[in-house]
């Protein structure tokens, strides 16, 4: 197992390099550059060229890439082209709110989706089942910007019980209850979407297992139906569910770009949008780099959890 993990980490290095090359090309080849985006309209062509030269933007792409890679290896993520702050500082500042929002959303979504999926499967083709599948269908299909604006209208504009956006009320930084209030709407919007698809996955995975012979064996032992479903069936239904959860982990970092934007959540998603708009190359590269690491890491984590859920899976 230890060997397997080491091997997977070693394989991850070339993958990560490949990802950074692609990201670099896509970002740098997009029309425009940081200087064009932030230039004073009165600046002369000469000024622009001096600025570009100073930032190294006139060098060939591969030289710029290797310079970036060299800096990364020294732990230097560079400086934002727009705010002149160190990139690492910007990201660490933004990662907290995103982690908070996304982890709460994921936990809420799973707490709702897994029991509902199990109930829906054990009562297949009942009214409960139809009701939950319809709702999960709605959860998946309603776009977050629409649902976001909808709940904002109802709870912030009409009822005026929840704040429209942000993470804290201005001048009231860091209050736990205050943050909780600000969390409610974005968490609702995000978890609806995540739970919607999760219910379907749990349901179909459970349905497959519920037809298995060994559950009849479990009933023949005289076990309660609750134990049969939740101990014998769920355990074996976990493999596909773990896969889905593993694919959800990267959004902890990636954030929900649209939802963060709607609710003015000061997280990485919002930062991504802003950086794309201002062609802030160094910030974008850092965001993508960390996202790639999280994706690779959660894939590894998923594979490790397979062995926990199913003893027939072994790596060596």
């Amino acid at each position: 197992m230890f060997q397997y993990i080491v091997r997977r980490i070693l394989i991850a290095i070339p993958v990560l390099l490949g990802v950074t090359i692609f990201n670099f090309l896509i970002i740098y080849m997009a029309p425009g550059n940081p200087v064009d985006m932030y230039i004073n309209p009165d600046a002369t062509e000469e000024d622009i060229q001096i600025k570009k030269e100073a930032l190294g933007l006139n060098d060939p792409l591969y030289i710029q890439y290797f310079r970036w890679l060299g800096n990364i290896l020294h732990g230097d993520f560079g400086i934002s082209y727009t705010t002149y702050e160190p990139v690492l500082h910007i990201i660490t500042e933004r990662i907290g709110p995103t982690l908070l929002l996304m982890s709460v959303s994921l936990v809420v979504a799973y707490l709702i989706a897994i029991p509902i999926g199990i109930i829906s499967a054990t009562k297949q083709y009942s009214w409960t089942d139809y009701f939950t599948t319809t709702f999960s269908f709605l959860g998946v299909s309603i776009p977050p910007f629409f649902l976001g604006l909808g709940v904002m209208y109802v709870f912030a504009v009409v009822l005026q019980i929840l704040p429209t956006g942000g993470m804290n009320t201005l001048g009231n930084e860091g209050g736990f209850l205050d943050t909780l209030f600000h969390l409610i709407m974005p968490v609702f919007v995000l978890s609806m979407g995540i739970a919607g698809s999760m219910v379907r996955y749990v349901r179909s995975s459970m349905l497959e297992v519920l037809g298995q012979d060994y559950l009849r064996t479990a009933r023949a032992k005289g076990l309660r139906e609750f134990v049969v479903t939740n101990k014998h069936a769920l355990r074996n239904a976990l493999i596909p569910i773990i896969t889905i959860i593993g694919m959800d982990i990267p959004i902890l970092i990636g954030g929900a770009v649209v939802t963060e934007q709607i609710f003015q959540w000061p997280g990485l998603g919002q930062l991504t949008i802003q950086s794309i708009g201002s062609r802030d190359y160094s910030v974008l590269m850092a965001i993508n780099f960390s996202a790639a690491i999280v994706v690779l890491f959660s894939n590894l984590l998923t594979d490790i959890f397979y062995t926990v859920a199913d003893p027939r899976i072994k790596y060596n």
Binding site: Q212, R216, R235, A309
Partner: peptide
């Protein structure tokens, strides 16, 4: 009551491959 009766009546299933839970020792 039925679950208690299961201590007195048991069944051996046809397919020894599918009738044992693969996740348990």
């Amino acid at each position: 009551e039925l679950r208690n009766l299961r201590t007195k009546m048991q069944i051996i299933f046809q397919d020894p491959y599918s009738s044992l839970n693969p996740g348990k020792r």
